[in-house]
């Protein structure tokens, strides 16, 4: 997808990041023609009022003839947007994403992430929901990943997440909660089966035996070998060491149930 940045750094500027360099486009007809011509694009802005005024300055008022503009265009707006102001933008863009600045990458970093080859593995913004105790993350490919807040356990040296200080750092690779930092990769690994399948293809050199997979999964979930109520810890050890190559299905079901996953998913870890 091409990415256009509408910014007020100059009197009227649209930067086309799809090119190898930033291109300043002519102010007349720029937004108007681009909205017509480019069907797959992400438009990014950090100022709703500026964006709206820029749209209204077009030679022909595109806000008045908007119905045919809704192609595969996405507007990613950093900041606040009153619900009453959403309508004109929702009619122009197929998807409208409004993300609070505090929990969103900077404009430059967001552009970098949207254009990255690994955009799907990077986070652009996040929204905490304390009622459901979840964090909804927006990935660079515009897909969502929802993770429970319980996934952010106190680290071994006693650092606890401060959810009121949530930020996204390292170009979308790290979630910061005060002094506590979480790797986005670890969340994808644990909560996105497609991501695990993708890295399993790449990690042909690493150990994919059931025992090794179980060990990685158990440690990632913070379980000890003795934490499985229905399976003897010596049995867990034997499976992990490869001494039991094909455990009974019932045993695998008990292990998977304790870990909160499906038995067939053990070997994806």
């Amino acid at each position: 997808m091409r990415t256009f940045v509408v910014s007020e750094h100059t009197s009227f500027q649209i930067s086309d990041q799809a090119q190898s360099k930033t291109t300043i486009l002519r102010p007349h007809n720029a937004i108007d023609s681009l909205l017509h011509q480019v069907s797959d694009a992400i438009w990014i802005s950090n100022d709703f009022d500026f964006l709206l005024s820029a749209l209204r300055k077009q030679p022909r008022p595109i806000l008045e003839r908007q119905t045919h503009l809704r192609k595969n265009t996405v507007l990613f707006l950093r900041g606040e947007l009153a619900s009453s102001k959403r309508a004109p933008l929702e009619s122009l863009f197929k998807m409208l994403i409004v993300a609070p600045e505090a929990s969103t990458l900077s404009l430059d970093e967001a552009v970098e992430v949207f254009n990255a080859q690994n955009a799907a593995n990077l986070i652009v913004s996040g929204t905490l929901n304390f009622r459901s105790q979840t964090l909804a993350l927006l990935r660079g490919n515009l897909e969502k990943l929802v993770v429970p807040l319980s996934a952010f356990k106190i680290s071994g040296d006693g650092v606890a997440p401060r959810f009121d200080q949530f930020q996204i750092t390292d170009s979308g690779q790290t979630l910061s909660f005060g002094n506590y930092e979480a790797s986005v990769e670890s969340l994808l690994y644990e909560f996105d089966a497609n991501y695990r399948r993708q890295i399993n293809v790449e990690k042909s050199k690493t150990d994919k035996r059931l025992g090794a997979c179980l060990r990685r999964l158990r440690l990632q979930k913070g379980f000890k070998q003795s934490d499985f109520p229905d399976v003897d810890e010596r049995e867990i050890g034997r499976i992990e060491r490869g001494e039991v190559k094909t455990p009974r299905l019932r045993t695998l079901q008990k292990i998977a149930a304790a870990l909160g996953i499906n038995p067939e998913d053990i070997q994806t870890y």
């Binding site: 790290t174 979480a182 990632q220």
Partner: peptide
């Protein structure tokens, strides 16, 4: 460039993460 051990990582195997821009 950055070299980090964060509070939540993929636990196994133990590692450091080298970060630059969108790559790690």
């Amino acid at each position: 460039w950055k070299v980090k051990i964060r509070d939540r990582e993929r636990v196994e195997p133990p590692h450091v993460t080298i970060i630059r821009g969108t790559q790690a």
